[in-house]
Design a binder for these strands. Structure first.
Lengths: 237, 237
DNA sequence: GAGTGGTCTAGACCACCTT
DNA sequence: AGGTGGTCTAGACCACTCT
């Protein structure tokens, strides 16, 4: 990328993450930054807006920009993050087991969830995620076939997100997630090490591409004790 | 507010919410909008960026802006939303019962969570939320005394957010939330109608003011079957 | 080639805070 | 008064899509 505002955003974000710029300290003013980086103030502001959005800094009119304590939480699941990215961040031993890989057509439930026609084909994949030797998560994914022509066992046990964004050139732009708690189904009981819990945490995700088409529906079913979700939210006034 | 970009944002958002502008339709181009509203293109773009952020539209370079189906979910808890705002949106019968209202000082747990000194005083309030006659949520709030000098039973049973933002002039700017599932404590069992469930969903919130100072820590403990959380997330590339 | 959104600039004025 | 961030403008050029 040649974007100037992304460059300065990434530089500042990195410095904040590594602690080079310390929490509670002041960032240089917008005018100083635009001189130092030889950019217009508008471009600097765009970079700072990104830092605000992602929780790195807080701006106060008339005063300046304060660096926030980003390391207060160490489990940043907010946003669309795949299992592989996640376990890498956690540094834990993890494994993915593929239970099912099929092509469906004309399923009523899916036609509802994915807004499908009768003829549309859908990949169904069921995977179990193991962390530290325990089966913790059951993932049921449904992907539109016309966006993803081919899926193999290897891809599914690696990261479908990497494959979709890397190999294919699809760009994921946003997702809606719904978190609830439900009674375990027989499938949950069979596939997961539930350790006596009588509920599972269910995360239903609707994933959209850059052209605003819905292309994936996922149900991620978690053993409750291992489930965590972090949200950073700015209040809309 | 005199802000032009907010005016046009609100107009467009309202038209999308009411269905006056239909999902999947195209918004007028940025140039058209800037002519129609007699604004510079930059100001129009700022309004559209807000619409993108809040999930109203999706932009596609070279094509235009597509209106998204905002009504797909009817439970927008994403962001910092108070119980009162929430139950109003749901239109359900609700009640708040105040169990405890105290001033604490020198509590170790709180000094950790709220970054306090020994001398700092903290309001502790414990409230039970009733929806449809059932005790569903147990809220334990801790507020910094120096920000909120006075609290009464009436305020606590109404909405502290309204009081804090309306009467006092404090502005809440952002919050970090952590969602997890835990075993019920004795307090949970005593205060809530748990209906046989052996877990509670715990939402821990850290709420910050506009000057980036932490001023509230809240534990919101939910009966699992009534808990829902909706997240709208754009993927950070 | 015409139209769309994305980036960047330079300058102006305002609202707010500090001294 | 001087510095800070917030808003707004007018204009330029680029990247992308459609036909």
């Amino acid at each position: 990328m040649n974007n100037k505002y992304l460059k300065i955003y990434n530089e500042l974000a990195k410095q904040i993450e590594t602690g080079e710029i310390k929490p509670k300290s002041q960032l240089p003013s917008e005018n100083r930054l635009s001189k130092e980086y030889d950019l217009s103030r508008g471009t600097v502001r765009k970079a700072l807006d990104l830092l605000v959005q992602n929780g790195y800094i807080q701006k106060v009119q008339g005063k300046g920009s304060i660096v926030l304590d980003i390391n207060k939480f160490d489990f940043p699941v907010s946003g669309v993050v795949s299992f592989k990215e996640l376990s890498q961040k956690l540094g834990q031993d993890s494994k993915t087991i593929l239970l099912e890989l099929d092509i469906l057509q004309g399923d009523e439930f899916l036609m509802e969830e994915l807004h499908l026609d009768k003829e549309d084909e859908v990949w169904k994949l069921v995977r179990v995620r193991e962390i530290g030797g325990q089966k913790i998560i059951l993932d049921k994914d449904y992907l539109k076939r016309d966006a993803v022509p081919l899926l193999t066992k290897e891809i599914c046990e690696d990261s479908i997100y990497e494959y979709i964004e890397g190999e294919l050139d699809l760009k994921i732009s946003f997702a809606k997630k719904l978190i609830s708690v439900e009674e375990p189904t027989q499938e949950d009981k069979d596939s997961l090490d539930l350790a006596g819990y009588n509920v599972v945490v269910v995360v239903k995700s609707y994933v959209y591409l850059e052209d605003a088409t819905l292309f994936q529906y996922t149900e991620s079913r978690h053993r409750p004790d291992k489930f965590r979700f972090v949200d950073f939210a700015r209040r809309r006034h």
